[in-house]
Each structure stands twice: as structure tokens, then as C-alpha cells.
Design a protein around this nucleic acid. Structure first.
Length: 552
RNA sequence: GCCAUGUUGGUGAAGUGGUUUAACACGCUGCCCUCUCAAGGCAGUAUACACGGGUUCGAACCCCGUACAUGGUACCA
């Protein structure tokens, strides 16, 4: 076809496209950002379900844009109506907000480079395709599904590359008259790329994360516009990321094999090629088969975004985990910088894992504990309050009624370099501090006590008589030792071990008895701190409770 | 089939030619501290660089091959 014929063809195919690509270039001008600022984007399809992997990807988009003073936008990639789920888009934005991964612009946010929904950009894509037809880089293809299937079969038998390219792309050299005939027959068609690539040549791509990669040049006449006139992912990606001036395309590495196509498209269109950063998927070792596979929502509860909120895993702790898999040096940094938060850390692509990252539940739990241990009692209280508001209203009510006490309990042993790590999620608070609220304690009683010993109520009553709750921990413990000795107990476990026959037990036994009576359990944070908070009246009430429980 | 990428101890991983007799973290074990637990300190644990060639004075690091894994190979993203 001559250029003149191609122009005619473009008008026949796209009579309604009046704008030129130059006009669009003006509508989407260069961003006015400082040097080094990264523009990233998260482009979910509107199925609505959000996977940990999606969250991870969006998290990366956010931190890189934020730390460089750039922009991170949300673009809905809904070019395939079959994938649309009612309410899906709303769910995506609400999950993102819930996880505190907030785009700076994009769909349902502000922004100058919209529309940020691909289904609303059809005209733009068609404008560029029209231009490509004029230039001879695109053509209408009338092949039927059956024809393509039989080519595939043939290719499988010949063990060659599968697809529409070279000699298999029979419609790429149709004359204008032939095209008109097809059109006159009302045949359906797609617009394909007329690939100029030579598969015997190699291209080298430098990925920000994976480094150098070599591929054969693309020679596939991939589909640009589907028969309904909407673009394929490949084409939409190239047009949108050019117009929206994305500097860094951060996406899952299922896209690396499409890289030759995307690079080629950018070149044909005369666009600057953005930098690519392909992140490895989050995998897991299957507990049954031992095989490494992608996280699956069906098998792995933590694969779905909803899980974290319901389980009471703090968003910020999840961020910590995402950061440790994003940059391999983050974990050590965080451990060595007690007073710093994620915002103080500088992420870099070359510290990002190349291979698949495995999900490590134990590590997540540990990170959560570390997170909680660095929070003050007040903070833990407020956050737990917010969590229970939604997921445990009964407990929420109790927390509100016992605010002062709760905070005191949550602050026990906080004033040390490395505080206790006994809470991993909000729902643990209820369990770990079951003794903190009188109402709960009276109800549960000693249900949680698993030992078989029965402790001497009278002994402990006498003990409480002599204890002064206004003293220091040290004085208290000395007094406890004194009391132990007076009553035939050894002052230290060591002494007791030396000659167990000389004693009824040791100080620890007295503490244990008291601990069980006032907390209902054999393990707890610092006993004296608990006693101080409870005060003698409540301690005595609980001892009486125990008396009933143990039939004394 | 074809194309691409990956493979370091129980787990997550550092490390891109020479103080690597291979970090660190999690886990686990023991001891210490100690009223219990947590935390902390100390010690230990695992015979860890997929396999086979090559380049080099020297390779976990570079090259080739094999195996395995993952992804792509759609008018899905």
C-alpha cells in the first residue's frame, strides 16, 4: 500500500477520530518535577480482589515515588470487560486506603493526566493507532479464530514459535481493495502491529531490579486493538505511560517476556522508553507438596488483603514486612535503628530481590511483635480500641470503660531498651491481658489455669497483709523473700535446690501462687507492677475468688 | 515445543573475581540472668553456594551445558 492508500484506509477505519496525536501530546505535557523524581503507577484490573502481591507492588510504587518527591498514580486497567466485577473498583480504592497505600493522583483521586480509567480513553488509543496505520506499522487483520487455531496447530507440530508473525501474518500485506472487500462483507477484524522486528537480532534491556536481560527482537504481529475497538494491555501500557509520563514502570515479572514488544512499541511511536523494574512474585513453599508456588488465596489466608485487617495485624507492621521483602537490607537497618520508621529508610532497586520472594509467616509475626514492643501503652491502647470497634464490640466496650487501667497494664516493662514482645496482633491483647479487666476476670475466673496445683489461700492472705504497694520493686522483692523465709520457704530457688528437704518451697512458689490467684495464669509480666495497678482491695477480691474456685 | 528469568544452611536472605576458613535476621537447642513469661547476654545448631565443564594465578560471583523451578507464549491483565 502506498502512503496515500494508507491514509485512505485510516479514514475508512477511524472516521470518527478527528484529533491528532500532536494534540494529545499537548494535553499531557511534561511533568514539572525536580530531577530524579520518580513517577510510578499501580494499574489493577477491576476484578476487585486484591492480593498480597498487588499490595506489595503498590507499596513499592508508593515508597519510590514518595522518597524521590515524585508522583504515584492509580490507573484502572479495565480494557477487558469480562474481568469487570461489580463494585470491584471501589473495593480496590478502599483496600488501598485501608492499607495506607495512598496514591498521590489517579482514579478517584485528583490529577491532571486523566482520565485514569482506560475504558474512558478509547479515543486516545485509536488516535495513535490511526497514525500507526498511516505510517504502515499497523493493519487490520481479518483472520478468524478458527484460522488462528489451525495455524497454532501447525506451529505445534513443527515445534516452532507460536503466534502470528512473518509468513503466518497473512493479512499484513493486504491491498486496499482487499481490505475494502472484507469490510464490505462485514467481516470482523482486529488491528495488529506490523512488526518490523528481526528475531535473529538481539536486544538488551536493563531492568532496574533484574539487571541486563537479552531477548530476540519481537516479530509478533500482536493485537493492538481488539475487534471491539479497545486496546490490549500492551498498547494501552505504552500509550498511557507515555502520556502520563511514568518514569518507572514497576510491575510483576510476569511481564518481562513482553518487554521486547513494549520496547518496540515505544520505539515505533517515537516515545521515550521508561525505566522498568520487574518485581518477583511472592511465593510460598507448599506445606503438602513442598513445591514453590505463588501465594494462593484459597490455600493461604494471608494471600488476601482482607485477612490482615480481620486478623488484627497492624497496617504499619505489614508495611514493615513489605519493606523487608522489598529491600534486603531493610530488616537489619530497622533492627539497628530503634527510633526510626519506614519513612527514614531509603529504598533502592538494587537492593531488591531478583528471584521469587518467599512468604515467611514467622518473620511477619516477629516483625509485628517488634512493632508492638516499640509502641507505648497509650498507642497500643488506641489502636486496639480502633480494631475492636469493628471486630470485637464487646471487648471494645470494656476497653473504653477501663482505659486508665488498660494503659497502665500495657505500659508494664515498657521503659527498657528492648521491651516485651508478647503481642503480635490486636486480637492478642484480649488474650494476653485477660486479667486486666475485673469484669472479664470475674467471668473467666480460672478457666485458663492449666496447672493442677492448689495454692494456699491463707498463706497468700497473710502475705498481702505485710506487703506495701508503694515501695520499689526491689524493696518489694526483699520483703517477699523475708516473708518466704519466715514461713519456711527458701529465699532463692538456688538455696531450695541445694536442700529441698529443708523447705516447703521457695520464693518463686509464693509468687506463683499469688500470680495464679490474681491473674489466673502461671505466666505474666512483672508481678509487682500488676499488684500495684490492682491495689489491695482488688487483689483481695481475687484471692477470695480463688478460694471459691479451689473450694478452700 | 519455543522464549526469558531464577536456583546460597530448617526459613527469609547478604554477597557480582582475592581478609568469605560464606554475613545478618527468623527458627530451634543449651547455658547465664531470674519470682514466671517476655526481653537481654553467651554459646551452639545446621556437613548452605543445584549439577557438570570451561576461563583465570584465583570463582558463590564470568562463560557454556544439564537438571529443576517460575513466568510468558491470548482479541486476559
Amino acid at each position: 500500500m502506498t502512503e496515500k492508500e494508507r491514509i485512505e484506509l485510516s479514514e475508512i477505519l477511524f472516521p470518527n477520530i478527528k484529533r491528532t496525536k500532536e494534540e494529545y501530546e499537548k494535553i499531557y505535557p511534561e511533568r514539572n518535577l525536580k530531577a530524579g523524581a520518580m513517577v510510578t503507577r499501580y494499574g489493577p484490573s477491576p476484578t476487585g480482589s486484591v492480593h498480597l502481591g498487588n499490595l506489595f507492588s503498590a507499596f513499592c510504587d508508593m515508597v519510590y515515588a514518595r522518597q524521590s518527591g515524585g508522583s504515584f498514580f492509580l490507573r484502572i486497567e479495565d480494557t477487558d470487560q469480562k474481568r469487570a466485577v461489580a463494585g470491584g473498583v471501589e473495593n480496590i480504592t478502599s483496600v488501598l486506603k485501608g492499607f495506607d497505600i495512598i496514591p498521590t493522583e489517579g482514579y478517584s483521586f485528583k490529577g491532571e493526566y486523566g482520565p485514569y480509567k482506560q475504558s474512558e480513553r478509547t479515543e486516545i488509543y485509536q488516535t495513535y493507532v490511526k497514525d500507526l496505520i498511516v505510517k504502515g506499522f499497523a493493519y487490520p487483520c481479518f483472520m478468524t479464530e478458527e484460522e488462528i487455531a489451525s495455524i497454532r496447530e501447525e506451529q505445534e507440530i513443527n515445534k516452532t514459535k507460536i503466534g502470528i508473525y512473518g509468513m503466518y501474518a497473512t493479512d499484513r500485506d493486504l491491498s486496499l481493495e482487499e481490505v475494502k472487500e472484507h469490510l464490505a462483507n462485514k467481516e470482523e477484524y482486529v488491528i495488529r502491529l506490523k512488526s518490523p522486528g528481526d528475531p535473529n537480532k538481539q536486544i538488551e534491556v536493563v531492568d532496574c531490579i533484574k539487571g541486563k536481560m537479552k531477548f530476540p527482537e519481537n516479530d509478533m504481529d500482536i493485537v493492538l486493538l481488539k475487534k471491539d475497538g479497545t486496546p490490549t494491555y500492551h498498547f494501552a501500557h505504552v500509550i498511557d505511560d507515555h502520556l502520563m509520563h511514568t518514569t518507572h514502570v514497576i510491575r510483576g515479572d510476569e511481564w518481562v517476556s513482553s518487554l521486547p514488544v513494549h520496547i518496540q512499541l515505544f520505539e515505533i511511536l517515537g516515545f521515550n522508553i521508561p525505566k522498568y523494574a520487574h518485581i518477583a512474585p511472592i511465593t510460598i513453599k507448599d506445606s503438602e507438596t513442598g513445591a514453590i508456588r505463588k501465594l494462593s488465596k484459597r490455600k493461604d489466608p494471608w494471600a488476601g488483603a482482607k485477612f490482615y485487617e480481620e486478623a488484627g495485624i497492624p497496617i504499619k507492621a505489614l508495611h514493615l514486612y513489605l519493606a523487608t521483602i522489598a529491600n534486603t537490607n531493610f530488616e537489619e537497618w530497622y533492627l539497628n535503628n530503634q527510633d526510626k520508621t519506614i519513612d527514614d529508610f531509603t529504598f533502592s532497586f538494587d537492593k531488591q530481590a531478583i528471584g521469587g520472594t518467599s512468604f515467611d509467616e514467622a518473620k511477619l509475626t516477629n516483625l509485628c511483635k517488634t512493632y508492638f514492643s516499640r509502641k507505648s501503652g497509650e498507642e497500643v491502647y488506641e489502636e486496639t480500641l480502633a480494631y475492636t470497634e469493628k471486630f470485637d464490640p464487646d471487648y471494645n466496650k470494656l476497653l473504653k470503660e477501663n482505659k486508665e487501667d488498660m494503659i497502665k497494664f500495657l505500659n508494664i516493662e515498657k521503659d527498657v531498651p528492648r521491651p516485651r514482645k508478647d503481642i503480635a496482633k490486636y486480637s492478642d491483647v484480649k488474650e494476653e491481658f485477660s486479667y486486666a479487666i475485673d469484669e472479664m476476670f470475674k467471668q473467666e475466673n480460672y478457666a485458663k489455669y492449666e496447672g493442677e496445683k492448689t495454692y494456699d489461700v491463707e498463706l497468700i492472705k497473710d502475705y498481702i497483709e505485710v506487703i506495701d504497694l508503694s515501695t520499689t520493686n526491689e524493696e518489694w522483692f526483699n520483703k517477699t523473700k523475708e516473708f518466704a523465709v519466715e514461713n519456711g520457704y527458701a529465699a532463692t530457688p538456688k538455696e531450695y535446690k541445694k536442700s529441698p528437704d529443708n523447705y516447703k518451697g521457695h520464693v518463686g512458689d509464693i509468687c506463683e501462687a499469688l500470680r495464679v490467684m490474681i491473674t489466673g495464669r502461671t505466666k505474666s509480666p512483672d508481678l509487682f507492677s500488676i499488684m500495684k495497678i490492682l491495689g489491695k482491695t482488688r487483689i483481695n477480691e481475687r484471692i477470695e475468688l480463688y478460694r471459691k474456685y479451689s473450694n478452700q
